[in-house]
């Protein structure tokens, strides 16, 4: 029972904690390993396995919400099982990889199905100016999300490693798969909301340009940003020139509306040749 609590609290405070203390890397194997070791009375094993798992999970990062596994839960459970069964990396490794993948799926499930629907609740609170509500929901969702997530290591520890593997196989694959698909499609809603902000008929072509160069030229986002900036600078320069012309035109006394266009054209010619 103590072990179950200890591991669950470690997962809550590190994997959850790094969402509260953003970008602090608390949930990496190299941190979790020794921490679990400390609580279960074998820091050395924890440290060793933590370091090995860090090497393995090194490539797994969480960029833009996309990832291949959740290393935190995997490390906590793998280290705990290894210490309790007095095994080393040999016990930890075969457990860590599937646990990491399943951990990510459950994390995604909570993220999509539990936290996801609250996005519109935040909007309606903002519309009502309900600041307290927003703050409460902001932290409430964090607590709920990571409490739910910490139940997994708690029960996994309570029932042991064999039972854990059996239960993991029971979740209908098709539901997990469907939610994974949903998780991949849902950014579309976010993109649509951004488009609602930015969309303007005159510049809408750039949306498709952005899509095209990633889909076909496989350009990394940073290159798209640079390219976009170059285009934006060119457009802004042209606009700035037009702005200057308009300023000159409006500064001149204009006789009548009909001659207005003419003046503009003349002005343009003047500038062109000067």
């Amino acid at each position: 029972m103590y072990e179950a609590f200890a591991v669950a609290i470690v997962v809550f405070l590190t994997v959850g904690g790094q969402e509260l203390l953003g970008f602090s890397m608390l949930g990496r194997p190299i941190v979790i390993g020794p921490l679990v070791g400390l609580l279960l009375g074998d820091v050395k094993t924890g440290l060793m396995i933590g370091a090995s798992l860090e090497t393995i999970f090194m490539g797994i990062v969480n960029i833009g919400g996309a990832s291949a596994a959740e290393p935190g839960l995997a490390s906590a459970l793998a280290v705990a099982f290894a210490i309790m069964m007095h095994g080393g990396l040999g016990v930890a490794l075969p457990l860590a990889i599937p646990l990491g993948i399943i951990g990510l799926q459950i994390k995604t499930l909570i993220y999509v199905a539990v936290v996801g629907p609250f996005a519109s609740k935040f909007d309606s609170m903002a519309e009502k100016g309900n600041q307290k509500g927003i703050v409460r929901l902001h932290f409430g969702l964090w607590t709920l999300q990571w409490f739910l997530y910490s139940l997994i290591p708690f029960f996994a520890m309570l029932f042991g490693s064999e039972a854990t593997q059996k239960v993991l196989k029971m979740i209908p694959n098709i539901i997990v798969h469907g939610l994974t698909v949903a998780g991949n499609v849902l950014p579309a809603v976010g993109m649509a909301m951004l488009m609602k902000i930015l969309w303007d008929k005159n510049i809408s072509a750039f949306y498709f340009l952005g899509f095209l160069i990633v889909a076909y030229l496989k350009m990394p986002l940073i290159a798209v940003a640079v390219m976009g900036t170059i285009i934006a600078i060119l457009v802004a320069q042209r606009d700035y020139q037009l702005h200057g012309l308009e300023g000159k035109v409006s500064a001149k006394p204009v006789a009548s509306a009909t001659t207005n266009n003419e003046t503009k054209d003349e002005q343009e010619n003047d500038d062109f040749f000067s």
């Binding site: 833009g64 499609v185 993109m191 303007d200 990633v214 798209v224 285009i231």
Partner: peptide
């Protein structure tokens, strides 16, 4: 907005699967 829209287009291609 041009940079923004282009990024949104790029992110659509990158993130929506």
């Amino acid at each position: 907005s041009i940079v923004g829209l282009m990024m949104v287009g790029a992110m659509t291609s990158n993130m929506v699967k």
